[in-house]
Design a protein around this nucleic acid. Sequence first.
DNA 1: CCGACAACCTGTGAGC
DNA 2: TGCTCACAGGTTGTCG
Length: 277
Amino acid sequence: MPELPEVETTRRGLAPLVEQRRILRAVVRHRGLRQPVPHGLERRLAGAHVRALSRRGKYLLFDCETADREAGTLLVHLGMSGRLWLVDARIPPEKHDHFDLVFDSGRAIRLRDPRRFGLVLWLKGDPLAHPLLASIGPEPLTADFDGAVLHRATRSRGAAIKLAIMDGHVVAGVGNIYANEALFRAGIDPRTPAQRVSRARCDALAREIRAVLGEAIEAGGSSLRDYVGSDGMAGHFQNRFFVYGRGGEPCMRCGTAIRELRQGQRASCYCPRCQKR
DNA sequence: CCGACAACCTGTGAGC
DNA sequence: TGCTCACAGGTTGTCG
């Protein structure tokens, strides 16, 4: 479900409802996520105070102070099928509702993740020093990322540019949808060897990555299948896809049929006329 | 370091 | 209707 815009939409929706609030209790119904949900998490979270909710790549970070005044971070990743939203704590959980964070307001944050590729961890100390976060590439929407950074990171890569921008160590948070869309907007064939993308085209690609992510956040993310935001409302950026999921349909710019192929076990969609190597 | 591929898991839709 | 297969928004680990 979620790439960076969907995670950021979730963060923005939840932040005002969890920041500076007290957690009554945490409920874990299924510990078998990408990594096991740690035992003792419920104990640490009971009575904890949420100071802030932030994001790094596709990870959500709940900055907490526990009841015995220890600092720590609840780290949540939504994987492929995860969704985190606010419910009345009395609403009974459904089959794939693995985790609840119940607040003193009587509401709860609920994690639903059918495929269980998501993650719920407790981090002590500096969360950004944790291996999962320390190796993540630059945030695409801050000054840490631009064409120069992208150009430098791709000089030794002979593999396709699409695989490079989807590698979280090159740039954080760009998944399959927005990689396809950014490449279309920048006019770059997704199969182009990364090291053969010029500095000028890296500038254009970095610019389009930032633009498409920013526009998607403004639209509340993309709603495919059952994804809805933290307030239960669907995002609507999926109505503005140029290529993703449009194989065989005419290009919205030139009318040529959009082509679809596989790169790294993922679908790539592109316009053979508008996108060049 | 880089790249190719399998793995984790469930649900859904297409095709027969 | 029911079976099998491919595929779905992500990341990590292994092997060459």
